[in-house]
Amino acid sequence: MAALAEGIRVVDADTHMTERHDLFTERAPKGYEDRVPHVEKVDGVDMWVIEGNTFGRAGSGGTIDRDGKKHPWRDSQGGSWTIHDGHDAAWDPETRLRFMDEIGVHAQVVFPNSIGLGGQNLVNSVSDPTLLRLCIELYNDAMAEVQAESDNRLLPMPIMPAWDIDGCVREARRCAEMGMRGVNMTAHPQDSGSPDLGDRAWDPFWEVCAGLKLPVHFHIGASQTSLSFFGTTYWPSQDEYVKPAIGGASLFLNNSQVLLNSAYSGMFDRHPELKMVSVESGIGWVPFMLEAMDYELEENAPEWFDKLQKRPSEYFRDHWYATFWFENGRGDLQHLIDQVGEGNVMFETDFPHPTSLHPSPLELVSEKISTLRPETQVKVMGGNAAELYRLW
């Protein structure tokens, strides 16, 4: 195994925590115990239920079994696995911390599973706004406890009530008061009735996130719109085990739309301290998209191009981060990272999902990471994340 540069403390910028079955019920106020999300057997299968509606299997949330062996998605997370068939580190914070010590990772950023990567499954299942707000607060309270009890080694990103801009402002402030280090936002708030992210109506939210140093995270698949291809419109001709690979690869490019909307909207001129993160999207598409953003806007809307204080591509350098894990830049990872910006890239493992670098993530990437300049290694493997999340 090739040696990494000295002084690296690895920060994993994308992992997932499977929701425990009692996550909501153990915190529910009196009178809401049966109304908040809970697990029931439906036709013999553990299902998440709220207000009589199911919103997904209460399964493993991952593809790694209790013995640490990785399985195909179709047989595990997408099959019949329950939460107890998967690795305990997928849902138990104490086991997760021991697992991190074993693989040499100091801290991990954490995103949801069953409730939706951006919390969208809750929004689609609940019509009562009071109950919906309570569910989001209960989830975020639980994640704040995980962060505190881990001594900031686990950094769950709280979900936002995307249907309510004022509610997002309040919840972001509340989460910052609990010590949380960012927010998790859906890519398509218009799915729940709000304006799209480029609308100036979101300016109060951006102002709060910038002022409180809360980077806004957009995980791939964090909306119903972005998930429309995954699991619903596979080409029928493809094998059942190939279809998840199609869905997974298709999801990686979703966030290019969020990048476009943010850069063209002028939001960064109005909020120069605002930071955003494209999670689990990889970085290979970024150089082309930066070129395309500049070219297309200048060609099609030259007056708007001139109104912006910077070229669209420059907004990525100053405001965006992206995560990578299996890419090698077709043999020249340093060149790819230089094109994206070594200050804009963070490492991830995606534990415990199908594309995760399991079982030994640092061993799997050490050879290609060792080809990077030492200062680049330090930044992308932990330094950029440590600065963004105020870790040390």
Rank of each mutant, 00 (worst) to 15 (best):
A13S: 15
A13V: 09
H21C: 07
F24Q: 02
K30D: 14
E33R: 15
P37C: 07
V42E: 02
M47I: 02
W48Q: 07
I50M: 08
G62E: 00
D65V: 08
R66A: 14
P72D: 13
D75S: 15
D75A: 15
D88V: 10
A89S: 11
A89D: 04
W91A: 06
D92N: 15
D92V: 02
D92G: 02
F99Y: 15
F99P: 00
D101C: 05
I103G: 01
A107W: 01
F111G: 02
N113P: 03
Q120R: 08
L122K: 09
N124G: 11
S127R: 13
L131K: 05
L132S: 01
L132F: 04
Y139N: 12
D141C: 05
V146M: 14
V146T: 13
E149P: 10
N152S: 12
L154R: 08
A162H: 10
E171V: 00
T186N: 07
A187S: 15
Q190K: 13
G193A: 08
F205K: 11
C209I: 01
C209Q: 10
K213M: 03
K213I: 02
F229W: 10
G248N: 01
G248D: 00
N255G: 11
S256F: 11
L260E: 11
G266R: 04
F268I: 05
P272M: 12
G284M: 01
F288R: 11
M289S: 08
E296W: 12
N300W: 10
F305A: 15
P312L: 04
Y321Q: 06
A322T: 02
G331T: 10
Q334M: 07
H335Y: 13
D338C: 06
N344R: 04
F347M: 07
H353F: 12
P354Y: 13
P354M: 13
V365P: 02
R373A: 14
T376F: 05
W392P: 13
